[in-house]
Design a binder for these strands. Structure first.
Lengths: 233, 233
DNA sequence: AAATATTTGTACGTATGTATA
DNA sequence: TTATACATACGTACAAATATT
């Protein structure tokens, strides 16, 4: 029944000591040679166990000095921002997508600013996500066709842009800006809310290495949607 | 000048192929034995290189089948939610705190619901944060006096509740809810915004193990503040 | 349905390099 | 300067899982 590997067991045991507060930040752990005898395994194995803890930011290694419990991390909340269709599915509702506008064009001044590019071809999309036929979010998006030429051939009325991009384009960085805005006329009309009513705006910039991939703004009626964020270990 | 390790170099090369899109999701990498000859190193080293990519979620391994480029991961944004006074300081503005209300009482129905407790004594606080003398956020907070009896003795006009709690009470879990709301009369008046104008609402529940510590709602004028969230590796 | 071959998973022992208290 | 403790890599071995025959 030893389904667990030696290095995982060692990692867990050390992790517990740290999490329980037994080993506080700054505490020096026994040198690898010592752990190797206490656990009756090779140094490689001990080393790999500690590797895992270093990756998780729990341990800091200093040559010649030893391995130390790292100082606890700052306050960070992990905000899950999945694709809209996933959000709707998670609520047990039916997702329906309406493509309002689709334009391929050379980036104009606003496009360049939003996407953070000098120029090039972009794809402009506007669509309305519905949950059980009720307006759920308005999506406005720019995709860099230089970075993602394959997007030209995709039918975004069938698959939501966010979902398609998530599945086809790897990203290295994303940045979000979350705010409250008043619904302007075209938005209010499409979302079916009174003019000026509060909406949650989520803007997202995504890029791969240095290439900008996409910019998107999602506008949700304030009375129908809120973001939830868990803690981050 | 070979300052870089072999496994790091291999990892980087593979990572580039993935990031550039050369190897798309689902692409199968050469088996470790093959990589070991192409790079002229041991299998352990190749294995460790791929280990790093697995940790980053770029590669998925299946025994007997091989190692494959993983489908891009779900979106997770790391949202930094510091204390309000820190936020203001980060903008280079002067923070000023006004304590509006401070009440110690037995938890009423609403308190119990917000804090998630059965009963007990609570501290109710309402205060206004100002940045350069302009209203910045309205804070409404409940503190469980059973969990944090020391709060009775603190002068929250001098130190903001969030800052004091952060520094004095360890927490293990936090949960956030971020939405857009319309400013109601008392809020609008205190924030100096028109009635019904959009505001960003950040609610936070904090607890230590199973004990509820505090509930807080921060209301920011929508035109003056937005949350920013970075990426998460 | 069972045997086989392939590929990853874990661990060993050893060796040498490197930064530093 | 030197000994210490981590850093990297080698080659080997066997185990585990599973696609293919």
């Amino acid at each position: 029944m030893k389904r667990i590997s030696i290095h995982d067991r060692i990692r867990q045991e050390i992790e517990e000591r740290i999490m329980s507060g037994l080993w506080e930040a700054g505490h020096r752990l026994p040198p690898e040679h010592e752990l190797m005898t206490t656990y009756g395994c090779s140094r490689m194995t001990v080393h790999k166990a500690i590797d895992g803890l270093v990756d998780r930011g729990l341990i800091e290694r200093r040559k010649r000095a030893g391995s130390f419990v790292a100082a606890p991390t700052a306050h960070r909340a992990a905000l899950e921002i999945p694709d809209v269709s996933v959000e709707i599915a998670a609520r047990g509702q039916v997702h329906r997508l309406g493509l309002i506008e689709r334009v391929e064009r050379e980036a104009d001044a606003l496009d360049r600013e939003r996407l953070g590019v000098e120029g090039g071809a972009v794809l402009w999309l506007r669509c309305l996500h519905r949950a059980d036929d009720r307006p759920f979010a308005l999506e406005e998006r720019l995709v860099s066709l230089d970075a993602v030429p394959a997007a030209r051939a995709v039918d975004f009325a069938a698959e939501s842009p966010g979902r398609w991009l998530l599945g086809h384009v790897p990203w290295t960085d994303a940045r979000h800006r979350i705010g409250a805005v008043a619904a302007k006329a075209p938005v209010a009309e499409r979302l079916g809310v009174p003019l000026g009513s509060p909406c949650l705006s989520v803007e997202r910039w995504t890029w791969r290495s240095d290439a900008r991939i996409t910019w998107v703004q999602l506008t949700y009626p304030g009375d129908r949607y809120a973001l939830e964020a868990g803690f981050l270990a």
